[in-house]
Nucleic acid binder design. Structure first.
Lengths: 187, 187
DNA sequence: CACCGGTCTTGACAGTGTCAAGTTGTGTGC
DNA sequence: GCACACAACTTGACACTGTCAAGACCGGTG
């Protein structure tokens, strides 16, 4: 099965290999040839399935958004409040770091990919659930964008290593404290 | 002067060339050889001054943090409130995009570089000015981290193209609306 | 004027993404 | 059951990349 000429599910194997590689050295250090070697195929096999290096990362990002949407939806189900969803946002960035490292990087992926767009839209819907309509005057929902910005910025700064040790020790608890300090979550 | 064998200020010229290149295609697409060509020197000249590709980007990031600190300090001077500083944060991310694209990317730079550390510390000090001491129990200042996360997340999501057109039309005004919606800035 | 140290160049190396062409297997229509 | 068409993958090549060692060049100090 595994040593067939036709791999069976090479696409899946390549995505997994890419996720591992990103987890080890980040997306900018990703090498298609290294991914191919990890999956045990020739150096040009990835290009056949994904067209492009960006194509492979696009597939990773799309899968990431799907898992992200799952995590956010589950967080709504648990307690239903904003803190839980924000904490899930932060937890995803930590636990699924290789996915997160690719998901909000337009220069690394094909932003017009239908699968990616669909998955990203699902995640956005899961995130904004229950945050009401956007203000027709302003053209956007200020509270929802604020919550998103807060969670995203916290996750991004945390991952980049800009937060003190006390935050890194328990990021979810720290996020809740930070969110409360801003006055958010009372809506 | 410019066609001398000893360039005069090649280091400066290389940084400028790198900033231009990053502005055009992002930091991941940066090529040392292209930077060298842009500055009119041989392909190995950058390595002599910066040791490394990461070394060049480190110099760019350090310069970025200096300008960033300037901008934040100026914003405090203007009106002295949080909204102005947050808006300056967002404006910097837009106007000085090539710098911002490198400043919070630990995988692209030498995070232990003394110049970079000094500049980043200055920017952090400028950002947290007037936000009081950190809570000794928690080990961090929740309100300050919240403000930082909000501004940073907003800037990051805006740049990545995740916000609706109404926000992109006037990002600073949108940020103020978003910050107000969270209840922040009343401290 | 000799010399020395820093500045930059030249040349080489292994590794990269991408493309064109070829090879190998798999399923389909007959 | 068999030829054929097509998809999956390989092979080989190309231009380009970052990095290193060695050399050429220049400015200033003795």
């Amino acid at each position: 099965m595994t040593d067939r000429y036709h791999h069976g599910d090479l696409r899946r194997a390549l995505i997994d290999a890419a996720v591992e590689a990103v987890a080890e050295a980040g997306p900018s250090a990703l090498s298609l040839r290294a991914v191919a070697k990890r999956a045990g195929v020739s150096h040009a096999a990835p290009a056949h399935h994904f067209g492009d290096k960006a194509g492979l990362l696009t597939a990773v990002a799309a899968e990431g958004f799907e898992r992200f949407a799952d995590a956010l939806e589950a967080a709504w189900g648990d307690t239903g409040d904003f803190y839980a969803v924000g904490a899930a946002y932060v937890r995803f960035a930590i636990d699924r770091r290789p996915y997160f490292a690719v998901m909000f990087r337009p220069e690394l992926v094909h932003t017009d990919d239908p699968d990616l767009e669909r998955a990203a839209a699902r995640a956005a819907a899961a995130l904004h659930r229950g945050s009401g309509e956007s203000d027709p005057d302003a053209g956007f929902n200020a509270a929802a964008l604020g919550a998103w910005s807060l969670a995203h910025g916290f996750a991004e700064l945390l991952i980049a290593g800009n937060f003190p040790p006390a935050v890194r020790a328990d990021p979810e608890a720290a996020f809740k404290a930070v969110a409360q300090a801003t006055g958010l979550g009372r809506a």
